[in-house]
């Protein structure tokens, strides 16, 4: 990974988003630097998912700007024409949804799910696409024999791992994850977290991970933001937030988790 470490990868400025009279994001600004894994924590309704979806270009914020530095200068993503944004979303960016069915094509095989981003990026050699799909199945610990099976025949954990493979196959630089372990059993969660952690490290990814689960943030993130009622009430390194939470709500959040 030849990331330029002297510049932020992503710059979020003054994002506001309201749904009716409910403020989901209240003037949120931050930077994400190459190699950083930012955990956004907070209870449901805190606005964290809305923030993530706004940044990733899945919904439009009411105001504010999002800039991304792929190879060169920071580019205002929210001002990009839609084709350019889509190109970004299927190459350098990736979005892992909480529910695999939102991120997978359930009516095509696992191999085709992984291959889709490659084919969208002009891969036109079947055997190569298939070889890449097999490599990624292995990387996410799904048996190669399942390559032609439909995702609906997979367990929830396998579907989520398939979604991750489908997203990472183009070696994105920035991955957005929305409660990636949300719908999974505890035992399956641990395995998925290990996997994500390993991939993030091996691929040198930067990521923004939204979770209500502090254990997920502890394991995956280098830095954390705590959100409540649409506001960022505290941010810092993961160990700072977990060991020295300062805002009353952060203290409540941390103290309500069983200490390991």
């Amino acid at each position: 990974m030849s990331a330029d470490l002297s510049k932020p990868l992503l710059k979020v400025d003054n994002i506001n988003k309201q749904f009716g009279s409910t403020v989901a994001c209240d003037d949120i600004s931050f930077e994400l630097w190459p190699g950083e894994i930012l955990g956004i924590v907070g209870e449901s309704g805190s606005g964290k998912t809305t923030l993530l979806r706004s940044i990733a270009g899945l919904i439009e914020p009411d105001s504010g700007s999002i800039s991304y530095a792929g190879d060169g200068e920071l580019v205002e993503v929210d001002k990009l024409p839609e084709p350019a944004l889509r190109q970004l979303q299927r190459t350098e960016w990736a979005f892992v949804h909480q529910h695999p069915r939102d991120g997978l094509r359930m009516n095509v095989s696992a191999g085709a799910n992984i291959g889709e981003r490659l084919m969208a990026n002009q891969w036109r050699h079947y055997a190569n696409i298939r070889a890449e799909a097999l490599k990624w199945l292995e990387a996410v610990e799904i048996d190669a024999s399942r390559i032609d099976d439909l995702p609906r025949t997979f367990s929830g954990g396998m579907q989520q791992r398939l979604q991750i493979a489908r997203n990472l196959v183009t070696r994105p630089k920035l991955v957005f994850m929305d409660e990636p372990t949300g719908g999974l059993d505890v035992s399956v969660q641990a395995r998925l977290l290990d996997l994500v952690r390993g991939l993030v490290r091996d691929l040198g990814l930067s990521a923004i991970i939204v979770t209500h689960d502090l254990a997920v943030a502890r394991l995956l993130s280098t830095r954390m933001m705590v959100m409540r009622k649409g506001e960022v009430i505290e941010q810092g390194l993961t160990d700072q937030i977990l060991e020295d939470p300062q805002a009353p709500y952060s203290q409540l959040l941390v103290s309500s988790v069983l200490q390991v």
């Binding site: 810092g236 390194l237 160990d239 700072q240 060991e243 020295d244 300062q246």
Partner: peptide, 9 residues
């Protein structure tokens, strides 16, 4: 020690 490491702000 934790302050010197930056864990405690």
């Amino acid at each position: 020690l934790k302050a010197v490491y930056g864990t405690y702000r």
